[in-house]
Design a protein around this nucleic acid. Sequence first.
DNA 1: AAGCTTAATGATAATGATTGTCAAGTGCAG
DNA 2: CTGCACTTGACAATCATTATCATTAAGCTT
Lengths: 139, 139
Amino acid sequence: MKPPAAQVGVRSTRQRIAVLDALTRLDDFRSTQELHDFLRSESQEVGLATVYRTLQALSDTGDVDVIVRADGESVYRLCSRHHHHHLVCRRCRATVEVQAPEVETWAEKVATDNGFTDAHHVVEIWGLCADCGLGEDHS
Amino acid sequence: MKPPAAQVGVRSTRQRIAVLDALTRLDDFRSTQELHDFLRSESQEVGLATVYRTLQALSDTGDVDVIVRADGESVYRLCSRHHHHHLVCRRCRATVEVQAPEVETWAEKVATDNGFTDAHHVVEIWGLCADCGLGEDHS
DNA sequence: AAGCTTAATGATAATGATTGTCAAGTGCAG
DNA sequence: CTGCACTTGACAATCATTATCATTAAGCTT
Ligand SMILES: [Mn+2]
Ligand SMILES: [Mn+2]
Ligand SMILES: [Zn+2]
Ligand SMILES: [Zn+2]
């Protein structure tokens, strides 16, 4: 009989609540630094290191989704009720949320077919939006 | 009448040949630094910055696959002819290449439906492989 | 083959996200 | 209310990647 492990050492602090609250309102992927800036813009003083630690912890427990962008920076998003993906303009960063029921089932099947469990997936589409895709010169 | 653009500015150098040759022999994902070390171990002197630039260029032209690992480091592998995605064990990094014809068409359709052009996509599945998914304790 | 133009290289400094350190602060069980 | 383990935050340290820029050398052109 081990003690209720889920409770050991987890304390509710002003900082953690602030980060979680920010994630709730910004329902998009954000980097640690962006979250930190956002909190500061609201005069919510939270140390940068603490934001890093909090997001790390939330990631470990699966409460947030993480994506490592092509430039190596990690971005986090609250694991929302409605799972969705993004279509992003590589130039202006315009973002469209997209659903993908068939991709969901495909991903799940691929994982189980290969003996994988507890699978998650990252599906992102990058392109040039209508506005940005006009006068292209492929150098 | 512009000159044959496909040739402009692309020079065949000892360094580029060496990097490409290394990628050919090491048919696994390797980081830039690992490639650089490998070349040095063979007394192939190539500047680290050059290895970075070469891999970047090969990535831009689609000649190598790139994966950004969870720690943010990018790893490269000579691109096999066929486009594919990866199913990766989040613990031991075991990797399975997967095909996804239906995802390809879905991604293309989503992009064009939203007015996006020149679209690419990222599809990665993370999970626990059969070996690693055995004795799990979810902390 | 020699000269030229300019991409390419490499030694090095700079960048910037992330992590480590540790003294001071605080949630909360008892 | 107290005590202590968990947290925090200011700051230093890492370390992969990028920027500089003087020097080298492909690949044309005579
Ligand atoms: Mn999905
Ligand atoms: Mn694909
Ligand atoms: Zn755009
Ligand atoms: Zn595994």
